[in-house]
Write a protein that binds this DNA or RNA. Structure first.
Length: 612
DNA sequence: CTAGGGTTAG
């Protein structure tokens, strides 16, 4: 308000000076007034322009960050390099308010843009701000829909679109690609078809970009014939229709078709290669992926990430790490996605040492202020590698603790035998007013189960429904069965399964079967196994458990019968293994693969004894 | 402001 008044005053002063300067010479009064008005408008434009300039500068700096790490890291953008979290965004927002830019819609829109699009996992803040705007413009609507479409809840994009139509805000050509992306991610076929109809209704089908998004949607989860019809009328010199269709086939796992398209493509750019490499990598065909990777004329960070993620996915963590080393050797700078894939590899393989290195790379990259996703992955990695101390350290160092962050630490501790700590953190979580979700309760129930806190577990199970209105799913029931079974309340566990509102699955019965083994209850064990056989999806573990029950009770005939049944039905038991890592001479780390039932000849008694 | 890569989940 003040600024408008001052701009007005500046304009008026300018106008009167101009008038007095020129009116006495050769200019007519009408011209004087015109010049005065021009000066006034100029004053106002400068004021608005100044704001947009400031905002744009900030926006550019925020945006530049993720891809710009190859350049000098000692640049003045250091301050903005920290803008990876909600906290730093709030600082910017606060400084905008104190500088009086809050009333400017352009300021709010930039903050919304940053929280919806730039900083991952902060879309909720954008939603809060969005709710405060009485009359959002089309750009803000699109930004919200776009951000929601790529967020964890793509459903919000659809809801916003519906809301938009209800408030009679006309979508434009940019709106639809984002809504379609949400449909693709949700695999909402019908909704996508509906959106297709609306695209026609609004006359946007001729739009090249929109048609490409439609090709992508239909190839991905809609109708393949529609996709190819749209493809046929597309400009074949454009790479996008080609790669959209190829990506769709690749994602559906139809790699042969994808490959044929890829070979037919008149022009290939890097993205089409990436599509194909990703397709192979996701299907576990790493040799083919590798071949294309070697052939591709140029590589970017996505190419490398696709390969690394592929190796992680098929369990070849060593190959993934080799790729990472090679990537660094040729000078390609790893980004957040690279490191997240690798953290998952470390968590799977238990490679604490490499995990630590990635931690320090991330610290360097983000100045120790991790985004929610990075923090979660780090907590998960440390917990799975057994370093509870570091998991807690990362957790405590995180400024913003999202539900998923709490979940990572609560589950990490619960599965690692630190039930008391886990439950303590859950109480702390409730104090900090973060709403627990269904996954949180999995962690809490697992913790109670491991600690033998049956009474508390029952309370939390009830609390989940009554206070948080979360309907228990099959996994929660599974936790309860596990908890009751472990503590020997086998009959109650059986009754609990009977009282369940959803159909029990094999996991539930297998859990009970496992509990029967521990407590040597042959009768209930047999019943549970019968249920499992009924479901005809019985796996080797069930046979082994049942056989063990008989064996533990000295009923060797029964045990033998089950083993024979196993052999006849061609069921085989996978060899179990555990990984132990210890420091040998201060620096070297040695890995031991300990197999309990193995073909390699290792007997777990020997190395275990050696370790002790 | 179109196509390609990632994390947490008995």
């Amino acid at each position: 308000m003040n600024r408008n008044v001052s701009a007005l005053l500046i304009g008026l002063v300018g106008a009167s000076i101009t008038l007095s300067a020129y009116s006495q010479t050769f200019v007519s009064p009408t011209q004087c007034v015109t010049v005065g008005l021009l000066v006034l408008i100029f004053g106002l434009l400068v004021k608005e322009g100044f704001i947009s300039m400031v905002i744009w500068k900030r926006r550019l700096m925020i945006r530049k960050r993720p891809n710009d790490r190859s350049t000098n890291r000692q640049q003045p953008s250091r301050l903005w390099a920290k803008c990876t979290s909600l906290r730093s965004l709030k600082q910017i927002h606060a400084s905008l308010i104190t500088k009086g830019f809050n009333s400017s819609p352009s300021a709010l829109r930039e903050v919304i843009f940053a929280s919806a699009m730039v900083i991952s996992g902060t879309i909720e803040y954008a939603h809060q701000l969005f709710a405060q705007i009485s009359d959002p413009d089309i750009f803000i609507w699109n930004t919200m829909i776009r951000g929601s479409a790529q967020s964890q809840n793509p459903l919000n994009a659809i809801l916003l679109f519906v809301q938009m139509e209800n408030r009679s805000m006309k979508p434009d050509r940019y709106t639809f690609p984002f809504v379609l992306k949400a449909c693709s991610r949700l695999s909402w076929r019908n909704m996508g078809f509906g959106i297709h109809g609306k695209v026609i209704k609004y006359g946007f089908l001729e739009n090249r970009y929109l048609r490409n998004t439609l090709i992508y949607f239909h190839a991905n989860c809609g109708d393949l014939s529609v996709a190819s019809d749209l493809f046929d009328v597309s400009d074949k010199t454009d790479v996008v229709p080609w790669s959209a269709l190829t990506a769709g086939y690749a994602r559906r796992g139809e790699l042969d078709v994808a490959r044929r398209l890829f070979d037919e493509m008149p022009v290939k750019d890097l993205v089409s290669w990436n599509v194909m490499i990703t397709g192979y990598a996701k299907k576990g065909e790493m040799e083919s992926a590798r071949k294309l990777f070697n052939e591709v004329p140029e590589r970017d960070v996505v190419t490398w990430n696709a390969m690394i993620a592929g190796y992680v996915l098929c369990g070849s963590c060593g190959e993934a790490l080799e790729m990472f080393e090679e990537m660094k050797r040729v000078g390609e700078r790893p980004d957040e996605v690279t490191l997240l894939s690798l953290l998952s590899a470390c968590a799977d393989s238990g490679d604490l040492e490499v995990g630590r290195k990635i931690h320090s790379s991330l610290s360097e990259m983000f100045c120790g202020d991790f985004s929610t996703v990075c923090g979660n992955a780090l907590i998960d990695m440390y917990a799975k590698c057994g370093s509870i101390k570091m998991a807690l350290e990362v957790f405590q160092g995180m400024r913003e603790k999202h539900v998923t962050t709490w979940n990572s630490v609560i589950l990490g501790l619960a599965f690692h035998g630190h039930a008391d700590e886990s439950i303590k953190l859950f109480t702390e979580m409730q104090r900090s007013k973060v709403k627990p979700n269904e996954i949180t309760f999995i962690g809490v129930l697992v913790a109670c189960s491991h600690a033998g806190r049956v009474k508390e577990g029952r309370q939390y199970f009830k609390l989940m429904r009554d206070r948080h209105s979360i309907e228990p799913n099959i996994r929660h029931y599974g936790c309860m069965v596990d908890m009751l079974g472990r503590s020997g309340l086998l009959n109650e566990a059986f009754e609990f399964i009977d009282s369940m509102e959803i159909e029990p699955n094999t996991i539930i019965w297998r859990t009970l079967l496992g509990a029967c083994k521990i407590h040597g209850n042959v009768e209930l064990g047999r019943q549970a196994n019968e249920k499992l056989l009924q479901m005809r999806r019985s796996q080797s573990g069930d046979y082994v458990l049942l056989s063990n029950i008989y064996a533990f009770q000295g009923e060797w005939d029964g045990a033998e019968k089950v083993r024979k049944l196993m052999d006849d039905s061609g069921v085989r038991k996978e060899a179990g293994f555990s990984l132990v890592e210890f420091e040998a001479d201060g620096k070297a780390f040695i890995h031991f693969l300990l197999a309990s039932e193995t073909k390699s000849g290792l007997r777990h008694q020997e190395p275990l004894a050696a370790l002790r």
